[in-house]
Structure formats: structure tokens, C-alpha cells
Computed example of a mutant assay.
Amino acid sequence: MQLPSLNIQSVRGQTGIQSQRPHIQIQNHKPNFSIKQDHAFVEMSTQQSKLTIDQREAFASANSKHVYRLNEEFAAKAMSNAHQAIAKYAREGDQLMRIENGGDVIPHLAKVNSVLFPEKGITLGQMPKPFSVKVQFQRSKTNYRVNEGGVHVQAQKNVPTIQHRPWQTDVYVRQKQSIQFKAVGLQFNQQR
């Protein structure tokens, strides 16, 4: 005789885990630079030297004078001679006015005024006179103006680009659990 038994079959459940590691990608961009430089320059201005030579006195000592100067000298000499003559005649008049005081005023005046050509001395000189040529020299002048150039720098930073994928873990059911019951060795008579 065979005893009935119960046959149990079970399947364990299994879970699966799938994970993805994190990923970071950083892309760094170069900064943008703009550099502008102004050129330096130098300005120079020069005032030329000047040489002045005045020879008028040298020519005048050689009796080569301008007509205006001759006129001025003749007028000055005539004025001086006129003043000397007036002074001489005034002195002689004063002497004649005091004739009663005695003395030989008239014979003395006659002797002095009778000389037509007074004696002249001899003098030695150079022509032209020394140091009669005037020389002036003005040296040149140079002015400098320096304009320094400048450098203008503009920098623009660029933000890095970051791509990030976080750690991701997926849990799933690989195999579902199950249980089955089965009666073995039972025979039923289902008829009555």
C-alpha cells in the first residue's frame, strides 16, 4: 500500500543589482585676452644756433660809414664846435669887459686868434681798431618730449563646462519566488 505524500517544490527568489559608476567630465576653456599697446613716441624741436657779426665799428674806423651815421656825426661835431665857439667868445668878452683892471688882454687875444693852423701831433693806430668787430654766438637748443606708450590688457575668464552622471544603482527581480504543492500517491475515487 502506498501512502500519500505531499510534494513541495519551491523556487527561491533572486534579486539582481546593476550599478553604473559615477562619471565626471570637466572641460576647461582658455581665457580670452585682448592686449592693446600704444606706441611710444618722441617729439624733438631744435632751435638753430645763431651767429651775429657786427662790423660797423670796424668799417667806421676805416671811414667807410653809412650816410645816416655820417650825418649824425657831422651834426654832433657842428653842435660841439658851436658850443665851443660860444664859450670862447663868452670868455673873451668877459676878459674884454674887465680891461680896466689892467693887463695885456687885447695883444694876448690877438696872438691866440692869429694862429690859423694849430700844430698837430702824430698818433699811431691800427685799422680797424682792436675789438671793433663784435661777435655774438647763441648756441642751439633742443627740446624733447617723450610720450610713453601704454599697454591695455582685458582678460575674460571662461567658466569650465562640467558634465556629471551620478552613481546609479538599479535593483531588479531576476527570478520570482514560487512554491508548488502536489499530492502524490493519492487516488481518489470521485464517483459515489
Rank of each mutant, 00 (worst) to 15 (best):
N113T: 10
Q18N: 12
Q14E: 13
V151C: 07
I106H: 15
T161M: 04
E73N: 10
G185F: 08
A62D: 03
N81A: 03
N147M: 05
L96D: 06
Q27C: 02
A40S: 13
A60Q: 04
R98Q: 14
E72H: 07
A85C: 01
V11D: 01
R21H: 10
S61L: 03
S10N: 12
V105Q: 01
I86F: 13
D170N: 15
Q138D: 15
F188P: 11
K134S: 11
P118S: 06
S140W: 11
R12D: 02
Q175S: 15
I99W: 11
P107M: 02
I106G: 11
S19A: 07
V153S: 04
F59Q: 02
S178E: 13
Q138W: 15
H152C: 14
K129M: 11
Q25G: 00
K88Q: 05
K36W: 06
R174S: 09
E100K: 11
A110M: 13
P31R: 02
R174K: 14
A62G: 07
A85L: 09
R145E: 02
S64C: 12
P130S: 08
N158K: 15
P160F: 14
S49C: 00
Q177P: 12
V171W: 09
V112R: 10
Q136V: 04
G16S: 07
Q2V: 09
P118G: 07
K176Y: 10
I53N: 11
N71G: 02
Y144C: 03
H39D: 06
T52H: 03
K77E: 08
V112L: 08
R12Y: 04
P4E: 13
R165Q: 12
D104Q: 15
K111C: 13
L116K: 08
F41H: 15
R174Q: 11
H66V: 01
S10L: 12
A60S: 08
N28C: 00
V112S: 11
Q126S: 01
S19C: 01
V42M: 09
K36C: 01
A110F: 11
L124P: 00
